[in-house]
């Protein structure tokens, strides 16, 4: 096979991703075990009899050694069974499915706007480097990353929901709504999330391209009399793909994992809201399940970034 080396790199990276996920699952399990207090006690309350506590522990498998419990949990999770919530006894997998869908809908919408916008603004900033469009873009995006997202959320709510009543302040969605109504409902959290991730991606795009613009082959392109935008898009951008994809993936992961606060602010029925509710109730299986899903998203997206970086390298794609 001509390109066995590339295949080996790709397989290695995927294997590393799986290993990381396994380690993360271990950490999540150990972390939740180390929480103070007794699950059975917190379910049955202070007045429970020792016999009732022992029965419940046996029923939940809490009398088993930790390693056995971990392997059981992991084995079930791999088969899609995330266990039952302690607080209401519901199947976690089915209650998460809808909420994960909602979160992905919100994050996906925000990403679909933020990623192309960040790239375009980054290219524009390089095109007019040091002039007013660059300064304006850099200044505004710096301001939006500097403001905490909950404050951005309340500011957006105040301006667009209270003062001008363009969008609803509470982003509840349900199956009966049309797609248009759903977009209308999530407009404000999407706006906030776009503003939060835009700056980081745009600045990295700008920095990565400017770094490439120092190369000798950019001078070659200039001496070919090409337009500046052609030089940036055709000669600089393809060589800046790896760092840009890396930061895009980090921000996509943030959109899924890090938006807990935004979801809570807008009372959006997503994973974040769900997680916060159950942490308050000390519902260990739910917390573990959410942790595992978040870790998988994070590790998966970073793995994709690394794979894109490997595949974007012409030296690896086309060996001598």
């Amino acid at each position: 096979m001509q390109n066995g080396f590339l295949l080996k790199l790709v397989v290695q990276r995927i294997a590393l991703g799986c290993l990381l996920l396994l380690a993360a699952s271990g950490l999540i399990f150990v972390g939740t075990q180390m929480l103070p207090g007794d699950v059975a006690q917190s379910i049955l309350g202070q007045s429970a009899t020792p016999q009732a506590l022992a029965n419940l522990r046996a029923e939940l498998g809490l009398d088993q050694p930790p390693l056995t419990r971990y392997l059981d949990w992991l084995g079930n999770a791999l088969q899609g069974d995330l266990g039952h919530a302690l607080s209401n006894g519901q199947d976690i997998a089915s209650s998460i499915a809808g909420r994960l869908g909602n979160t992905l809908f919100l994050a996906g919408t925000a990403a679909a706007i933020a990623v192309p916008l960040a790239l375009a603004l980054g290219l524009l900033a390089v095109r007019f480097q040091g002039r007013w469009p660059d300064r304006l873009i850099s200044g505004v995006t710096l301001a939006t990353i500097s403001v905490p997202e909950f404050l951005l959320g309340y500011l957006a709510m105040f301006a667009l929901a209270v003062q001008f009543r363009v969008f609803p302040s509470v982003s509840s969605i349900h199956d009966g709504m049309s797609l248009g109504q759903q977009f209308q409902a999530i407009a404000l959290p999407v706006l906030v999330m776009v503003l939060v991730v835009l700056g980081h991606m745009m600045r990295m795009t700008r920095a990565a391209i400017l770094n490439v613009m120092q190369s000798a082959y950019i001078e070659t392109a200039e001496l070919k009399g090409l337009r500046r935008f052609t030089i940036i898009a055709r000669h600089a951008l393809p060589n800046a793909v790896a760092p840009i994809v890396n930061v895009i993936m980090l921000n996509l992961a943030y959109l899924v994992v890090g938006v807990v606060v935004v979801e809570v602010v807008f009372v959006y029925p997503g994973m974040g809201q769900y997680l916060v509710d159950h942490v308050a109730k000390r519902d260990v299986p739910v917390v573990q399940a959410c942790g595992l899903i978040f870790a998988a998203v994070y590790i998966g997206l970073n793995m994709i970034a690394d794979l894109v970086a490997i595949l974007a390298n012409p030296r690896l794609r086309h060996p001598r």
């Binding site: 000798a216 070659t220 055709r234 000669h235 060589n239 012409p314």
Partner: peptide, 10 residues
């Protein structure tokens, strides 16, 4: 240096 003067990605 032609090695540096060619765009490595094209």
């Amino acid at each position: 240096s032609a090695a540096a003067a060619f765009n490595p990605a094209r």
